[in-house]
Amino acid sequence: MKEAKIVTRDLTLHYGLKMALNSINLHIPEKEVTAFIGPSGCGKSTFLRCLNRMNDLIPSVHIKGEILIDGLDIYQKKIDVVNLRKKIGMVFQKSNPFAKSIFENVAYGPKINGISDKKKLTEIVESSLKNAAIWDEVKDRMHDSALGLSGGQQQRLCIARTLAVEPEIILMDEPASALDPISTGKIEELIFELKKKYTIVIVTHNMQQAARVSDHTAFFYLGELIEFGKTRKIFTAPDIKQTEEYITGRFG
């Protein structure tokens, strides 16, 4: 296994009195794809949102334990959350482009980070769109509204928008669940390409997708991390019976 980019130590999370994550210890390797799987309510999305401190926005959330990214605890008081989220991009289930042009959507992040040079911005937008495998489809209509793109294109535009601020980690919360098979295939191919440069963590309900795109798989159930291992092992001979029952559909 490659060196860990993200390490969690005894990470426990409560929503008010309800425990949503129970003492999670996990090493997420650098520049690989790690998939989180598990039934609804198992804590996988909650755990994902801990990784860029998105749960800070929910008042009833209490977190114990540590999350280290490159060895640094991201829940330390001195951590600048805005900078943290620049380093850790996120792609959501439903694509959410701004009601702006395609160009402006991608240029938005670099602009608020202080880049104003038009030539530099154009370069960033082009390379981000190319890396998100959507450049050829939009290069002739950069100033059209992003809302006119198809669902699959909008999702890849959102990935381009994430890439534009040069993150190191990309979190994906069911990025293809609302897409048709062709668009899903494109997103999956894109994930495969992106892992050469980025550490990717993906939450998915689609077992075949987890099997296809990820190097490592973590199975969550009732707030516990049940099993973590190489995807090729988890999907051929998992060690834990609960994992086997879940991935083969015998669960419940």
Binding site: M207, Q208, A211, F235, T236, A237, E244, I247, T248
Partner: peptide, 9 residues
């Protein structure tokens, strides 16, 4: 069915 794990084996 795209079998996995024990089914695949």
């Amino acid at each position: 069915t795209q079998p996995v794990a024990t089914d695949l084996r």
